Simulated scan of single mutants.
Amino acid sequence: MAAFDLKTALSLFPIVNREEDIIKSLLDGIEFYKTVLRSEDHPLLINFILKTRLSSGAKLKLKTNYDSISDLTGDIKKFLLPNKSYTFILAQLQKCRQGNRTILEFGDEIERLFIELTIAQAGGLNTAYEILLPINEKTAVKQFARGLNNDRLSMIITCREISQVREAITIAIEEENERLSLNSETCYRIQSRNYYTKYNHAYNKNYKPRFFNKGQVRYNGSNVQTQRNQQMHSKEGRAFFRSKRINYVGETADNNNSEENETSLEFFRE
């Protein structure tokens, strides 16, 4: 057993205010330090709590001196912790819905409510708390499944034999992540298919190629033939595209070479 240490006590016990979590943290610290502290130093711990860890309003509700640490913690629970009716907590649990919150946030709220409900129903009796805890947790799991936004997740949680709220939260998060990954993969496949349909003429049977300024394209059934033309400039500044294959009716580029059966297409510069 250890002796009372002021530095340890200062770091372990928070200053009490109206927040319920702070009061519970103080009670947990007292219960822990009680197990490692020597019995002859218990009055020092009681005096330290009463003089330094309580607010002015809390001091008015408690006695100025206590014979045991158990009496001190009992009065702190009785006078400082808010008394909540278990019917009110049960009504909050039954009305709880996910709404705009994440699955984890909603699950934490359900877990907090069912623990508070169990504490309120137990009335400080450990045996009653141990009996009521699994019963209320099953009710909390059903309410968690009922309050989810996704009906598919609600059905999964309801059909499985889940007895713990934390397990239900984990399963719901895993199922939701799997659903989101499948949806993203499906969208990617649809986009890829649409891109292939739009830009690949081998897939689209009705595709016909375009005509480009610097080349002639001829479409013969399913075969596409592209012929590059040789560009030359005349003295007048005109651009001619000479081709050895006649695909369009055009003017003869050179009258002196008409016997070569060559045809040119005339394009004016922009």
Score class of each variant (00 low, 15 high):
48 F>W: 09
190 I>Y: 04
113 L>K: 09
228 R>S: 04
28 D>T: 08
57 G>Q: 13
15 I>R: 05
4 F>R: 00
139 T>R: 14
224 V>T: 07
18 R>F: 11
255 N>I: 06
95 K>F: 05
234 S>K: 12
75 D>M: 01
69 I>P: 04
121 Q>E: 13
87 T>W: 07
49 I>T: 06
7 K>H: 10
223 N>D: 07
225 Q>W: 08
212 F>E: 03
20 E>S: 11
97 R>P: 00
5 D>V: 14
84 K>D: 05
98 Q>L: 12
125 L>Q: 06
154 S>N: 05
42 H>M: 13
165 V>T: 13
128 A>L: 14
241 F>S: 00
131 I>L: 13
81 L>Y: 11
219 Y>V: 12
47 N>F: 10
85 S>L: 15
69 I>T: 06
64 T>S: 13
75 D>Y: 00
90 L>V: 03
47 N>S: 14
20 E>F: 03
158 T>H: 03
96 C>Q: 14
39 S>H: 03
239 A>Y: 10
113 L>F: 10
258 S>A: 02
70 S>D: 11
95 K>T: 11
231 Q>D: 05
12 L>K: 12
2 A>N: 10
178 E>S: 07
22 I>G: 08
136 N>R: 05
116 E>Y: 10
249 V>I: 01
143 Q>F: 12
144 F>V: 07
133 L>C: 02
172 A>H: 13
8 T>S: 03
122 A>P: 09
246 I>T: 11
181 S>E: 12
28 D>I: 10
232 M>H: 05
217 V>H: 04
188 Y>L: 11
226 T>L: 15
77 K>Q: 09
178 E>H: 02
145 A>N: 01
57 G>I: 12
129 Y>A: 13
111 E>R: 13
214 K>N: 12
151 D>F: 11
89 I>Q: 13
213 N>G: 03
260 E>K: 02
120 A>L: 12
204 N>C: 09
187 C>F: 12
115 I>Q: 05
1 M>C: 02
230 Q>R: 07
45 L>I: 03
183 N>Y: 15
103 I>M: 05
220 N>V: 14
100 N>G: 06
139 T>S: 09
199 Y>I: 08
229 N>R: 07
207 Y>G: 06
258 S>R: 00
148 L>K: 05
86 Y>P: 14
97 R>I: 12
47 N>W: 09
94 Q>R: 15
53 R>M: 14
95 K>W: 03
243 S>T: 15
76 I>Y: 00
198 K>E: 10
239 A>C: 15
215 G>E: 11
251 E>D: 15
256 N>R: 02
32 F>Q: 11
204 N>Q: 08
